[in-house]
Design a protein around this nucleic acid. Sequence first.
DNA 1: CCTTCATATCCATAATTCATGAATTATGGA
DNA 2: TCCATAATTCATGAATTATGGATATGAAGG
Lengths: 110, 110
Amino acid sequence: MDMTSALTAFSALSQQTRLEAFRLLVTAGDAGMSAGDIAEALDVRQNTLSANLAVLLQAGLVRNQREGRVIRYFADTDGMRGMLGFLLQDCCGGRPELCQPLIEDLTCGC
Amino acid sequence: MDMTSALTAFSALSQQTRLEAFRLLVTAGDAGMSAGDIAEALDVRQNTLSANLAVLLQAGLVRNQREGRVIRYFADTDGMRGMLGFLLQDCCGGRPELCQPLIEDLTCGC
DNA sequence: CCTTCATATCCATAATTCATGAATTATGGA
DNA sequence: TCCATAATTCATGAATTATGGATATGAAGG
């Protein structure tokens, strides 16, 4: 993950519809969600959501897959990991005490 | 962390100077850096950096502290944690296998 | 084929964001 | 009090981004 990709990723998540869509896909997990279902869940117009999903795609934060007439979207964990890794790079250069509580906090019980 | 705060945080990190400044402060850790040093390190004008630091401040991603004539900035780990927690909320609803590798990948060796 | 459903793309307008220069505030030292 | 340094604030214009309507693509079914 380089600076440009990271910027694209953060930029993608800095808009309400996209952040909501991404979180929806994170909780949906491997099941993913169709574009239509996402649009309905978020109550946004079809073309607006489509444009926003395209932004998330280009940022590498989601993947999609055609299934007949529907297109199913999934959160891309690799992309998310790359972004977070870039952000936290060298966060604990010799200072585990800075990094450790953050990690623990993110384990969300699993 | 609510949606609005998360959006503010991601938006703050979606601009090159701010993302660079934030990463600089993450690696600087408890030592922090003065506004002037950050401006010099990133080669940006004082007022431009000041405006960008203000955005990071408002997003809760950095803190600052006056020390005589200089103002020292620090990465705010609580803010960062809040943002990441919001993003990953319910990422592993019953599916630890999705969340675990991500966490491990972020432990960056410490 | 023709229709219908699901989604994407094009285009114009509205809204937002950004860097910059000029001016301002705050601090410490002479 | 005066000056230099450190940093912030403000207004502006340029560039980017979001949105909605209309239209296009692509797949399934009759």
